[in-house]
Design a binder for these strands. Structure first.
Length: 487
RNA sequence: GGCCCGUUCGUCUAGCGGUUAGGACACCGCCCUCUCAAGGCGGAGAUCACGGGUUCGAAUCCCGUACGGGCUACCA
């Protein structure tokens, strides 16, 4: 592991792992893995109102599910911890002392009301917002004595008078320039001593020797402020890469209105982590513009920051569905059975012991199902008829069983299947003879059998289904429905 | 309001001065076929947001406009 590439994903545990956050995590991970660098997970839990332990756990489990393993962070530690911001307050305090000592921070006694008023006024005039530096002109003695006297105060960054435009390199945007006026003497430490976000991140990224900051676009405007903090701290500025946002289908910020937004929700809907990872990797990045199926190994081998696109992307569930289907179809029977049984067990239809008792049966079933679904949750309705007596769908009964000839077809099927070998070929051969013998269309015969066996006009392939169902149950269902069908 | 960022088929994107503007999803048609899928073949779909430049030549470079987004907190 080389130390020249150290990146981090730094979520706030104020909710589940969002799709956008997952992509940010994925890009950091892929970048680190590509260069044999270090991927760090840091929990930014400084907002006590909204941060919860549950959310932290949910984020960890979502990352585990996606396969985004980290090298330093919660649960596994590392040389630059702790990895929870709430456990790093002493470091922020030390950093602040450093800035005070070097003259880069000064106390401000302005009240919230005063600041609000000033901000309003400044905005009215149009143009430059930000703190007007009132307390910056306080004499050192005056400020010190007021602090000593216990006057409530915050600590502000003293942006150098001669600091010109702030220019930094962003791998995806190129050179980004902010006018000096975009950075005011912002607050580093609040009245209660806690650090503000823009100060804490820089302290953490410095302490953790972060080489590349890969994060959401919404932080681009924070970057000049952070750059000034790095300078005040006299620390090296990392390389930045700001990822544009992911939007919902309507081009608006992705939210509950758009359906599932958390990684967890996608897992529950039957998406595979492999597919979600593949889809997310292509949402704002491309290998060559042609390749769409990219597994983790390929991603690790090819990921690069310079192929990240600048424009925001709309999350397209239909493409994810297609991709999920591709991954499902690529599974071996064993892999698919492994996933299938989870869903069947949840539905109360089967369990691992069942698989263990008849592995070949499940192995035969697997490919029939896997090539027909896009999401794992579709498994249940598709194979239910093999585990329980199906209910005959009303419209299927009307359209098929109550059609003239259906009863004869079922009766004939019973006879035809009575003595043949019970395997697909024999079953098919036996049933194929019926249409002609009965003077019915093949479709009419097969659909009648299908509905009688599965309860639906749409099902897994007929002959295979019968084989899997077994001779006895097939005969019983055919007989039961023959009695109710139209001759 | 100010500052910053973005704009190629409906969607994700390729393109980085000269291409019939390529691929993928979705869509349509045909083939395969016991239903549904999968698969194969083919099709439609982008005046490259708009307007000016620069250039022999611009989707590609520059400027402006429009639209969208972000930041502008003692949130993160």
């Amino acid at each position: 592991m080389t130390d020249n590439v150290r990146v981090r994903f730094a979520p706030s545990p104020t909710g589940f792992l969002h799709i956008g956050g997952a992509r940010t995590a994925l890009y950091n991970w892929a970048f680190a893995r590509h260069f044999g660098g270090t991927f760090i997970l840091r929990i930014e839990d400084t907002d006590p109102e909204r941060s919860t332990e549950e959310n932290t756990q949910a984020i960890l489990s979502a990352m585990r599910w996606l396969g985004l393993d980290y090298d330093e962070g919660p649960g596994i530690g590392g040389d630059y911890g702790p990895y929870f911001q709430t456990q790093r307050f002493d470091r922020y305090a030390e950093g602040l002392e450093l800035l005070k000592a070097s003259g880069h921070a000064y106390p401000c006694f302005c009240s919230a009301e005063e600041l609000d008023a000033k901000r309003e006024a400044a905005r009215e005039k149009g143009g430059v917002a930000g703190y007007d530096r009132t307390c910056r002109s306080l004499s050192a003695d005056d400020a010190a004595s007021r602090v000593a006297a216990g006057a409530p105060h915050v600590w502000r960054l003293k942006v150098p008078e001669d600091r010109g435009d702030i220019v930094f390199e962003d791998v995806v945007r190129g050179e980004v320039t902010f006018p000096a006026t975009a950075v005011d003497d912002f607050v580093l430490a609040r009245t209660d001593g806690s650090p503000t976000y823009n100060f804490a991140v820089v302290m953490d990224d410095v302490d953790m020797h972060i080489s590349h900051v890969i994060r959401g676009d919404d932080h681009l405007s924070n970057t000049p402020k952070q750059v000034v903090v790095y300078e005040a701290l006299d620390e090296a500025i990392p390389t930045f890469a700001h990822l544009s946002m992911i939007w919902g289908a309507d081009g608006k910020r992705l939210s509950k209105r758009h359906g599932a937004t958390s990684v967890e929700a996608y897992a529950e809907l039957g998406y595979t982590p492999e597919a979600l990872m593949n889809y997310l990797s292509l949402l704002g990045w491309s290998l060559d513009g042609e390749t769409t199926i990219i597994d983790a190994a390929t991603l690790k081998a090819n990921f690069s920051l310079d192929r990240i696109s600048k424009n925001p992307a709309i999350f397209d569930v239909e493409k994810l569905d297609w991709m999920n289907g591709v991954y499902i179809r690529e599974m071996t029977a064993e892999q698919f059975v492994e996933r299938m049984i989870v869903w069947l067990e949840a539905a109360g239809l089967s369990d691992p012991a069942d698989v263990a008792s008849r592995p070949e049966w499940f192995a035969r079933l697997a490919p029939l199902v896997s090539e027909r679904i896009k999401r794992l949750d579709e498994i249940v309705s598709m194979v239910e008829f093999l585990f329980a007596e199906p209910e005959i769908d009303e419209s299927a009964r009307e359209k098929v069983l109550l059609k003239e000839g259906a009863g004869r077809a079922l009766t004939a099927a019973i006879a035809a299947l009575a003595h043949c070998e019970w395997d697909v070929e024999e079953i098919e051969a036996a049933l194929r003879e019926l249409p002609e013998a009965l003077g019915l269309k093949p479709k009419a015969v097969f659909q009648a059998v299908r509905v009688a066996i599965t309860g639906s006009t749409v099902s897994l392939p007929l002959f295979e289904s019968l084989e899997l169902l077994g001779r006895e149950r097939t005969r019983a269902r055919l007989a039961a429905n023959a009695a109710l069908a139209t001759e």
